[in-house]
Amino acid sequence: MCLFAIFAFATCGGYSGGLRLSVDCANKSESDLNIDIAFAYPFRLHQVNFDAPTCEGKRREKLSLIGDFSSSAEFFVTIAVFAFLYSLAATVVYIFFQNKYRENNRGPLIDFIVTVVFSFLWLVGSSAWAKGLSDVKIATDPDEVLLLMSACKHQSNKCLPVRSPVMSSLNTSVVFGFLNFILWAGNIWFVFKETGWHSSGQRHPAGAMEKQSSSYSQGGYNQDSYGPTSGYSQPGTYGQVGEYSQQQGYGQSGPTSFANQI
């Protein structure tokens, strides 16, 4: 992740580009065929000034580009720099301070929270910079800049774009921004597994199964312990039945002998 963070802030923070315009006046002596406009990070375009001919004698007008997109660009670069520093520090802790990292489970919990925060920041920062880059492209479009010149409002003068700014590195910075978001968001699960929340979540079902198995085994043991007693009591029950049958037989013999006597 350190490498991707470096690419993100390097491709954005180190950008410098420019465009070139041509104004061909009806009076050729007043023309300027090479108007160079340079701009760079942090894209405060309203501070980028340039001179353009008015095609009205030797008088020239001072113009500036439109827009200030420094907030989204600086926010994106700041996230990339801090993400790089944290990744570097975390790598050192993982390698050299593994015991302290796992002590009291504070290290994994802090790492988990920071990872979630950086994932959110990468998503917000990349989205904001993608919108900012789109606005920068519009503000630095040569056709849009030509509309700012008063000489280009007259059909007798010819205003043409000579060179457009190259935005490939800025496009790359947006791509690396969203790649960093994917990496940090995917790392949330691996960091979560190191926390106590994941381990405690696995312990509770196991403890519940152990309780169920122990209670089941106790119930089986009680049944076995009562089995011989109940089995022992059954002969006594049969004995009572036998005695009852004997009494019944004795009761029946009385009436029989009485009938014989009669």
Rank of each mutant, 00 (worst) to 15 (best):
M1R: 02
C2F: 11
L3A: 13
F4G: 01
I6Y: 06
I6V: 08
F7D: 10
A8W: 09
A8V: 02
F9S: 00
G17K: 00
G17I: 09
G18M: 05
L19G: 06
R20F: 00
V23H: 01
D24W: 03
D24R: 02
C25A: 05
A26W: 06
E30A: 05
E30F: 08
L33S: 06
N34I: 08
N34Q: 12
A38M: 13
A40W: 10
Y41G: 00
N49H: 09
N49P: 00
F50D: 11
D51Q: 11
P53R: 01
C55D: 03
E61F: 02
L65R: 05
I66V: 08
G67V: 00
S70A: 07
A73W: 01
E74G: 11
F75C: 12
V77Q: 00
T78I: 13
V81M: 10
F82S: 09
Y86S: 06
A90E: 09
Y94F: 14
R102Y: 15
R102L: 14
R102V: 11
E103K: 14
R106H: 05
D111G: 10
F112C: 09
F112W: 06
F112K: 00
V117L: 11
F118Y: 11
W122A: 02
L123D: 09
L123P: 04
K131S: 14
D135V: 01
V136E: 05
T140M: 04
P142T: 11
L148G: 00
A151V: 02
C152T: 04
H154R: 09
N157C: 15
L160I: 14
R163H: 04
S164A: 05
V166L: 12
S168M: 03
S168C: 04
N171Y: 01
T172L: 12
S173I: 02
V174L: 04
V175R: 00
F176D: 01
G177T: 02
N180R: 04
I182H: 00
W184T: 12
A185V: 10
A185W: 05
N187S: 10
W189E: 12
W189H: 12
F190L: 10
F190G: 03
K193I: 03
K193S: 07
T195V: 02
W197Q: 05
H198Q: 13
H198G: 03
S200R: 15
G201P: 05
P205I: 03
P205Q: 01
E210T: 14
K211A: 13
S213A: 15
Y216T: 13
Q218L: 15
Y221L: 11
Y221F: 07
G227I: 08
P235L: 15
T237S: 13
T237G: 06
V241N: 12
G242A: 15
E243H: 15
E243C: 07
S245D: 13
Q247A: 13
Q248E: 13
Y250C: 13
G251R: 03
S253W: 07
G254V: 14
P255Y: 06
I262W: 09
